Measured scan of single mutants.
Amino acid sequence: MDSLVVLVLCLSCLLLLSLWRQSSGRGKLPPGPTPLPVIGNILQIGIKDISKSLTNLSKVYGPVFTLYFGLKPIVVLHGYEAVKEALIDLGEEFSGRGIFPLAERANRGFGIVFSNGKKWKEIRRFSLMTLRNFGMGKRSIEDRVQEEARCLVEELRKTKASPCDPTFILGCAPCNVICSIIFHKRFDYKDQQFLNLMEKLNENIKILSSPWIQICNNFSPIIDYFPGTHNKLLKNVAFMKSYILEKVKEHQESMDMNNPQDFIDCFLMKMEKEKHNQPSEFTIESLENTAVDLFGAGTETTSTTLRYALLLLLKHPEVTAKVQEEIERVIGRNRSPCMQDRSHMPYTDAVVHEVQRYIDLLPTSLPHAVTCDIKFRNYLIPKGTTILISLTSVLHDNKEFPNPEMFDPHHFLDEGGNFKKSKYFMPFSAGKRICVGEALAGMELFLFLTSILQNFNLKSLVDPKNLDTTPVVNGFASVPPFYQLCFIPV
């Protein structure tokens, strides 16, 4: 009986604490739906499609509103004006990374994606500088992407125009580009180590996009005490870190300090320079996690976009025909596509942009946080508050993009057929937390897609009208449904 009384008292205290925290903070924060004790607004949000729920709530509470995930307040920004004001106009104040408990377990605050403060700034600055020195957006990395595009075309030829699921092959190409940047090595598509790495990356994007992960991140005790797919994700990350550590040891034994070959060499050189400046942010643990982040951000996002792009091109054969006509006119058949071609191919450029806009790969991006107490639109948001960005509300804005739910390359073309930029184009987020590999991803999408369409016609196994382009999961990332196609050599 005594234990029951204690339990009831504990629960009562928890409920009172929950109510007090919510009521004391709500006077400062933007308005929002009334949260339930302990669980907050979790029942009012469709976990399978958070973005749709945010759109519905914005119609009631406006472009800036507050939700509670458990006891934790989260300020939501919906629509271009609110997102721009926060991420661009007040970029420094909104540059923090929001709480992501599962990532905390995986990387302990290291790396480039989930770190904060001085650690994040130094690692991000170093990573950007190193990638630029190796030619991100310049010639040397373009050579690597072109080489991988040629290998991709050869792998597709091996399908002999038979029906195939493109998931694996389209994942190999961007993964190999990242391998060449980090390890100075590309792998054969049949290499077992490479296959294991690909498998872990593919599993992780599916797990991260599941409703279960949303629950884990908002009720963090689940991570330590409950079984579930989150444990598989943590094991996959541990596998990748151990693999990278092996490569780091190989580099330490063979590195030429006067001739760095890749990202690992550059990081080890930085560690050597910083060894007298303790404590340094440049450690082996930081290198492991930064490399894992580059793999995660640079492989599955690009391969998922490529997979979605081919599905949309199957669905819209008239678009595919126009792209192939432009390829034939500008590039021809006797040389590989290059980035200089893009400025002469406005329709193809528009298609690449429209694919990214339409699929809305990361509907709410990753959570941000404010780095200080900030007054925002007459609300006071306390330091450390998590900020949720609705990228969907920007990419699918119906004023900027008429009929935003329709796939239409003319969203990025003017009346004369010239490519038209849009400030609403934010597939990689915006501001200080914009994806480090934005330029690389854009290069890969253009070169891989043009190389495929230069060499193959795409054949659907069903009537294009019957192809479903609805994402199968739409949590962290929008993942396309399973499909097969035939690559018919031109």
Rank of each mutant, 00 (worst) to 15 (best):
D165E: 04
I359D: 02
R26L: 12
F94V: 11
R108G: 15
T66N: 01
S390T: 09
L14G: 15
P227N: 10
T55I: 13
P101I: 07
K375R: 14
N277G: 09
L467A: 02
K52T: 13
P337R: 01
F69L: 15
R186A: 02
I213W: 15
A369P: 00
N466Y: 10
I327N: 02
Q324Y: 05
E253L: 15
F282V: 05
L287S: 01
F168T: 08
M257T: 15
N218Q: 14
F239S: 12
M129K: 14
W212S: 07
Q192K: 14
R433I: 00
E203K: 07
L268K: 04
L170Q: 01
Y347D: 00
G96I: 05
S478K: 13
L447Q: 04
N259I: 07
G117M: 06
D265L: 03
T386N: 09
K232H: 06
L197V: 04
L208N: 14
R26I: 11
E203N: 05
V462S: 08
I284W: 09
D397S: 11
I215H: 07
R342L: 12
E148G: 01
S460G: 10
V330D: 03
M240D: 00
K28S: 13
N398P: 15
A106I: 15
E354T: 00
T371Q: 12
T470G: 08
L67W: 07
H411L: 01
K247N: 06
G111Y: 01
I327K: 00
I178C: 01
E92H: 11
R342K: 15
E285D: 09
K273N: 11
P221Y: 11
F482Y: 14
F419T: 06
K247G: 04
C151Y: 15
A297R: 00
I374Y: 09
F412Q: 02
R433L: 04
I47M: 13
Y483Q: 01
R97S: 06
G109V: 05
F226T: 06
P427T: 07
F126T: 07
F407A: 00
G332C: 06
E142S: 04
V355Y: 00
F412S: 01
P73S: 03
A321D: 11
S343T: 14
Y347S: 02
I123W: 09
N236M: 02
S115D: 04
P221H: 11
Q454D: 01
L71E: 10
L449C: 06
I284Q: 07
K121G: 10
L90V: 13
Q356V: 11
A441T: 05
T470F: 05
N218T: 15
S422Y: 06
G475W: 09
K84I: 06
E104S: 12
I141T: 04
V75P: 02
S24R: 14
V145G: 00
P481F: 00
S51L: 11
M406Y: 10
N217Y: 15
L485P: 00
S451G: 08
E285H: 07
Q454Y: 02
G117A: 11
S220T: 13
I387S: 03
P33D: 02
S127N: 13
K121M: 09
S429M: 08
V330R: 11
P317L: 02
P337Q: 00
F219M: 11
G137I: 09
Q193I: 08
Y225Q: 07
G25Y: 11
V323T: 09
C435P: 00
V177A: 01
Q278S: 12
T371R: 09
N107I: 05
R139T: 12
L314I: 10
E354G: 01
K160V: 04
P163V: 06
L131P: 05
R108D: 14
G298N: 04
R335H: 08
P260I: 04
L17V: 14
V76S: 03
H316V: 04
P363D: 01
C10V: 14
R307P: 00
I50N: 07
V153R: 00
F168M: 07
Q146D: 03
E104Y: 15
F407G: 00
V64S: 05
T385A: 08
K160R: 13
A369L: 14
I141D: 00
T229H: 13
F401A: 03
L67P: 01
R377T: 04
I223V: 12
K459Y: 08
L14H: 09
N289A: 15
P404D: 06
K459I: 06
E272A: 12
S460M: 03
E81L: 06
F476D: 01
E122C: 09
H411V: 01
N133W: 06
L197P: 00
T371W: 05
A86L: 05
G117N: 12
G109K: 08
H276W: 11
T320G: 10
V355S: 04
T304Y: 05
F456Y: 06
M269S: 12
R139M: 11
K241G: 04
L36P: 02
E148P: 00
D224F: 10
K119W: 04
Y189Q: 01
V6G: 13
L461I: 13
F487P: 00
A430N: 13
E354C: 02
L413Y: 05
P31Q: 07
D191C: 04
D349P: 00
Q278D: 11
Q324F: 03
T371G: 10
A86S: 09
S58M: 05
N289C: 11
D49S: 09
N107T: 15
G46V: 05
L233R: 02
P489Y: 01
L208Y: 08
A350R: 00
P317M: 05
L208R: 10
H411R: 09
K200V: 11
P37T: 03
K241A: 04
K375W: 10
I47H: 13
L447H: 04
S478R: 05
L445Y: 04
R144P: 04
F407T: 00
Q22D: 10
F428L: 07
K235F: 04
F412T: 01
K28L: 12
N474M: 10
I264S: 02
C338R: 10
E354W: 00
S162V: 11
Q192V: 11
L152D: 00
R132M: 07
T299G: 05
D191Y: 01
K72A: 05
L361C: 07
F183V: 02
F425N: 09
A161T: 07
L36I: 13
A321W: 09
I213Q: 15
C151G: 05
D414A: 04
L361D: 03
L380H: 14
V6P: 12
L440E: 00
L54C: 11
K241M: 02
K375L: 07
Q454H: 05
N378F: 01
I488N: 08
I141S: 02
V292N: 05
P37N: 04
Y483V: 02
H344P: 04
Q356R: 06
F94S: 08
V352P: 00
E203T: 07
Q22E: 11
